[in-house]
Simulated assay, not measured.
Amino acid sequence: MTAEQQPEGRTQDEPRGPLPALAGLAGVPAHSAAEAWGNVRDWVTRGHLADTRRMPRLPIHLGDGYTVHRYEPTAPVDPDLAPLLLVPPLGAPDFAFDLRRGASLVEDLLGTDREIFIVTYDATGRAAGRRGLELWVDEIVPAALYAIADRHGDTPVHLAGWSLGGLFTLLAAASKVSGAPIRSVTAFASPVDVSAVPLVAPFRSVAEYTGGRVFSAAYRTLGSFPATAVKWAFQLTSVERYLTKPVTLATHLDDRELLEQIEAVDLLMDNMTAYPGRAFGQIYHHVVRSNDLAQDELRLAGRPVRLADVDVPVLLIAGADDVIAPVASVERATELLTASPDLRFVVRPGGHLGVLAGRRARENSWRDLERFLAAHDGA
């Protein structure tokens, strides 16, 4: 079995990465010159530094606009460990969970002998723009859960999502329409209270002044929130880091892991996708403009979907340096998830992506997830 192909237009051997922007080795300490030259040599000869091959996986269920994949185990599967379904957000590629070798949550989880699955979405086509949040909450996530449970004697399945994917997992557990077999929910960097997100404040002010008409007209005309705009939004959250990137690279040529991480993150940014128009409209009106989630007043398909109705164990993980989902915006959920029998909230090093796939995630948020899953593997 071979690993899946890289995202379209990208192969492992294509010249790519941070090093073309560097003029030389100025600023590298003398004792690290050998490591720096070795990194430059490898980039010149191989065209890349990071190993961004994806962990092998196969589709097990094909739905209308989505696919459920099973990652190929790297060790014998322990039947006493309940399966885990990963839920990516809209806009960002699903390989955020499998960023690169050495910084892949999927790779790490497979090493624990647990079966790992992921649901992916088709963000293209005319139908995609008409898909609303209720489709993910009431249909896609539940259908993926049932497909996995059917393979495991109808056992409930662990759920883990990142960013908006984390909100999908929480809302799927809150919705009682499908009766999906959920064992636990983990949400990485999922903002519940957008009033605690400084970057959103200007958009909320414009929405309040215009009654929401400006942004509504924009996404209805375009049919979606463009991929380029999604990429800019992510980059805006770390504009200082992007401005100082050339200096960082020039002074850290000897730090192989840092160079690999930057290269892998750049690849992720280059593969952002558009937000479906209807889903983006709902996020804008109900989350950004009205902050319904923070008040536990969100309505989907004409009915309330309340976090207070989540009755499974929940782990909330916030990034200490996250400006997209600041700690306070994630922590707000702890006041709403009143029916959860085991509610845990932790703050770990990293930004919005870093808390999921950063260089410090292995010893922090990944271990939190591992312990949480193990605590709820029983019936």
Rank of each mutant, 00 (worst) to 15 (best):
E115T: 09
T251K: 10
D377S: 07
H352I: 00
V330A: 01
S175N: 06
R371M: 10
G153W: 10
I182V: 15
M1Y: 09
N291Y: 05
R53S: 12
L84P: 06
V40K: 04
L86F: 02
S290W: 02
R126E: 14
S216H: 14
Q261V: 00
A233R: 04
R289H: 08
A26K: 11
A274D: 12
P29A: 04
D13G: 05
P304I: 05
A379S: 13
N39S: 12
A375K: 04
A143N: 13
G129S: 10
A147C: 01
A207V: 01
D266W: 10
V40T: 09
V239Y: 10
L133C: 09
G38N: 09
D94R: 09
V305G: 01
L253R: 05
V185L: 06
H152Q: 08
D296A: 00
P304V: 02
V323L: 12
Y66V: 02
G350C: 03
A294Q: 05
R303D: 03
A207W: 03
T338A: 12
T338H: 06
H376I: 07
T228V: 10
G9Q: 04
S184T: 14
Q282W: 03
Y209K: 13
G111E: 11
L85S: 02
W43R: 03
I317C: 09
R114W: 05
D51G: 04
P226V: 11
V305C: 02
R54G: 07
G354D: 14
E370M: 05
L316E: 11
L316P: 06
A189E: 01
V141H: 05
K176S: 04
F234D: 01
E240T: 06
S104F: 10
